[in-house]
Every structure is written in structure tokens, then in C-alpha cells.
Nucleic acid binder design. Structure first.
Lengths: 150, 150
DNA sequence: TTGAATCATTCATAGTTCGAATCGTTTGAG
DNA sequence: CTCAAACGATTCGAACTATGAATGATTCAA
């Protein structure tokens, strides 16, 4: 109906991903709030769990954030007992982060909450639609250079 | 492979939407930068174009942001000549915003750039996959209470 | 052995958004 | 008809996030 159609902006893939991404992130943020975590913290825990990186600099590069941000997040996660800091014996400049048992449990808890949100979001989709959506987003993620487990 | 599987966080719908949404938004932000716009500005133009709201307060509610933020965005859009401010004659407290011709052209331009990003993002998907992804995201958007044109 | 490079850390800063306070306008109770 | 309460817009200060520059410790190479 709009004068801008048929190039409708709001129904474009980019805009939909943006708005839906914001909604999902907002809900996730609220869900993990009680744990004293923000999505970025959970992303750091997940990167550690995936073995994608272990030194703080590597983590920063993997997550696409400034190294100084990893420092403060590591501070907080350490205070929560979710990770331990340890200098690399082979290169004492490097701070190695490792998940603790508590950290692993915390990550597990957050993953469960993410899946609960998934179920809410996708409630109106059939099982087949849900599966093809999952697969399509997986392809997009891989194309965009994000780590995709197989 | 992770200890957290099968509740893998990073492959959850919420997390994927969050990260892909960030990527899409980042690219869109870069694409429209030259126009002096940010995604929020474009969202405001789109809401106006869709006729979803016209007073600033209504706009704020439709967009889910503070009324004071609409004020500053309207200032900037007015300076760009994209919108005009006009007091509602029937209630002079209300500031009505209306798209100008330039504003409509600007929105059109931004929509075209969003679709260019869409094409990049979805390059690895077949036409059928792209279409079913589009439809699934439409359903999710409607379920989440977002305006979905039909 | 020493100067350059590297990693972690601190700190000041920029950018974004919100909420409280203020001003003009409208509304409704009396 | 009047005036106090409600309402919308606007300004302004504060909180939060993330960044980049500066610093310190460690490593590496000549």
C-alpha cells in the first residue's frame, strides 16, 4: 500500500532479522538477568565452551569486540566463579580463561532459557517450518563467517 | 561436541536471530551512513510511510522508544528535509510529522540498499529456501506483535 | 643485552537511550 | 466560566555500553 513498495523496507530480510534479533535478544537478556549475566557474557562462555579461543585476545577477536571489553567481562565472570584466569606458562603475557564447573552449569542454564524462548517465538510454526528455518539460518550464519557447529 | 549439547546455545533460534540481526543491522548502518541516517531514523520514516502513527507520541509508542528520542530524531530528519513538523490544529499539543517528497525518496533509497544486503546475505540459499525463510520470519514477526503488511 | 613487538589492563571519552523536570495546551469538575 | 489536573513536546542530566589511547609486564630478535 505504501508508496515505497514493492521495495518494502520493513519486510526485507535485513530489517526483519534486525527487529526479530532485537526482540530475541531483549527476551534473552531478561531471562538471564537473575544470573548476573548479559548476552555478551554468555557469548564469551559459549566461545570458551566451544574451544574457539582461550586467551583473552583470541576471545576478543572471535567475538569481534575490543580486548579491553573482554577484560571487564572476564573480571565479572571470574567474580561469579564462572571462569578462572591463568597465565599461559609458555607465554606469561597471555591470560588463559577456562570454564569452571559452575560456569559450565551456568552456560547450560542459559542455553535452556534460550531454547524456552525459541519455543515461544516459533510457536506458530509447524515442525517442518521450524526445521527449515533452523537450517536456513544456519546457512546464513556460515555465509556470514560465524562459527557453525556441525 | 560441547559439554552443553544437545542444548547448544549458539545454534538456538534466539541466539542465531540475535547474531544475524546484529550483522544485518551493522551492514545496513554502513550502507545508509552517507545519507546521514541511522537505522532508527529509517524505522521512523518507515512508520510514517506505513501510516502507523503521525504524532510524535504515537510514533514513540509504535517504535518502542522514549518520546524524547523521537524528538531528537525528528529534529535531525527535519534538518535533512525528510519530514515536516506541524501542530495538529485540533490539538495544538500534538506535533504531527509528515514525510516530504525528499523523505519518501530517501526511504526508497534505503529500502533498495536493504534489499541489496538481503541478496548478499541470502546468496547461498535457493529461491525456494529464500521464500520459505521470508515467510517464516513474517510469521515470527506477526507473532511478536510487529506490524506485518499483507 | 636492549629495543621493538605483544598481551593485558586502566582510564578517559564518545555515543545512545532513558527519565525527571519544565512549558504550553487542553480538559473536566465545580 | 474558571482553574486545577492531565497531556504532549521539549530540554537536560544521568546511566550504560563500548572503544581507543596510554601504561606495564613479558617476549622476541638482532
Amino acid at each position: 500500500m505504501s508508496a515505497v513498495n514493492p521495495l518494502s523496507l520493513t519486510s526485507s530480510l535485513s530489517f526483519r532479522l534486525g527487529t526479530l534479533g532485537t526482540i530475541a535478544t531483549t527476551r534473552f537478556t531478561a531471562a538471564i538477568e537473575d544470573h548476573g549475566l548479559k548476552p555478551k557474557h554468555v557469548a564469551l562462555l559459549a566461545a570458551l565452551d566451544a574451544g574457539a579461543a582461550s586467551s583473552q585476545l583470541e576471545l576478543a577477536q572471535a567475538m569481534g569486540v575490543a580486548p579491553s571489553l573482554v577484560v571487564s567481562m572476564a573480571d565479572q565472570l571470574e567474580a561469579l566463579g564462572a571462569v578462572v584466569r591463568e597465565r599461559d606458562p609458555a607465554d606469561r603475557r597471555r591470560q588463559m580463561l577456562a570454564l569452571t564447573e559452575d560456569g559450565r552449569a551456568l552456560l547450560h542454564e542459559c542455553a535452556a532459557q534460550a531454547h524456552a524462548i525459541d519455543a515461544e517465538l516459533a510457536a506458530a510454526l509447524s515442525l517442518a517450518e521450524r526445521e527449515s528455518l533452523r537450517r536456513a539460518l544456519g546457512v546464513l550464519a556460515r555465509e556470514a563467517g560465524l562459527p557453525v557447529e556441525e
